[in-house]
Amino acid sequence: MTLNIGNRPPSFSLPAAGGGHALFEPGDGITVVVFTCNHCPYARAWHERIQKVAQDYTGRVTVLQINSNDSSRQPLDSFESMEAREAGGDFSSPYLRDEDQSVAKAWDAMVTPDVFIIDAEGELAYHGAPDGSYDDDSANAEWIRSALDDLIAGRRVAEPVTSPKGCGIKWKQASGLTIGSRP
């Protein structure tokens, strides 16, 4: 399935680092879903900006961060490593584990970070990168912020699609597929 602007993404329930679960149902309010991980230099470069968005929009927007990487291929992305980062206070919103990669596949996530913003009606309103420059903190996740500001104001997102940039999701190897190919 390819998730396009205006489509309703699938719901999910995933375990959270630090305990508990998070449930996403389209239509439960404006939600930012970020596919991220522990090891990718792009995800790490944008990490603080994404945490600041979660803090700045608390009470108006839900932010969920998901790690879908195969930890046998990238041990730094194990649930234990996720929990260590969570315990260290590295996350301002739930950090979720997609162990079987079903959510990443259903959402057609390809890189870390890959940002999806769902509007209050439950439709995809933005897909892409946090901002235009992973190595410039002053960019301040401006593409996420602009999309959220548009949605909060009741407007359509002015720039609904940008090009996500990051490390490819580390897919589990399936019979007949080579490492790195998308199932």
Results as ranks from 00 to 15, higher is better:
51 Q>E: 13
45 A>M: 07
41 P>Y: 04
54 A>M: 07
109 A>V: 05
139 A>S: 14
66 I>M: 09
176 G>C: 03
14 L>Y: 06
169 I>N: 00
162 T>D: 08
173 Q>S: 04
65 Q>E: 14
100 D>F: 08
164 P>D: 05
128 G>A: 01
183 P>K: 01
140 N>F: 05
178 T>W: 04
23 L>K: 15
11 S>K: 10
168 G>D: 13
143 W>V: 05
122 G>S: 03
113 P>M: 13
87 A>C: 09
159 E>Q: 08
116 F>D: 06
139 A>E: 15
100 D>A: 14
62 T>V: 11
47 H>R: 14
22 A>R: 12
95 Y>M: 05
41 P>E: 05
50 I>F: 08
28 D>L: 05
101 Q>M: 02
1 M>R: 08
95 Y>L: 10
152 I>R: 06
109 A>E: 02
73 R>F: 09
156 R>G: 15
179 I>M: 08
172 K>I: 04
178 T>H: 12
137 D>V: 14
122 G>A: 09
179 I>R: 03
160 P>G: 09
132 G>N: 10
183 P>H: 00
35 F>M: 00
158 A>H: 14
104 A>E: 09
174 A>S: 10
19 G>F: 07
110 M>Y: 08
109 A>M: 02
64 L>C: 01
9 P>M: 03
75 P>Y: 08
18 G>D: 05
177 L>K: 10
174 A>D: 07
169 I>Y: 02
115 V>Y: 00
65 Q>L: 12
177 L>M: 11
174 A>Y: 15
147 A>Q: 03
43 A>G: 09
126 Y>Q: 02
145 R>Y: 03
43 A>H: 11
75 P>I: 07
30 I>E: 09
22 A>C: 05
18 G>Y: 02
72 S>R: 12
48 E>H: 15
99 E>C: 06
25 E>C: 06
142 E>Q: 08
96 L>R: 00
94 P>T: 05
151 L>G: 03
172 K>L: 03
9 P>D: 04
52 K>W: 11
115 V>P: 00
33 V>G: 00
122 G>C: 02
77 D>A: 14
13 S>A: 13
45 A>P: 04
182 R>E: 07
1 M>Y: 02
117 I>Y: 09
140 N>T: 01
120 A>S: 14
82 M>F: 09
26 P>S: 04
27 G>H: 07
106 A>Y: 00
98 D>Y: 04
45 A>H: 09
151 L>E: 04
57 Y>L: 11
145 R>A: 07
104 A>D: 06
129 A>F: 06
134 Y>D: 13
150 D>C: 04
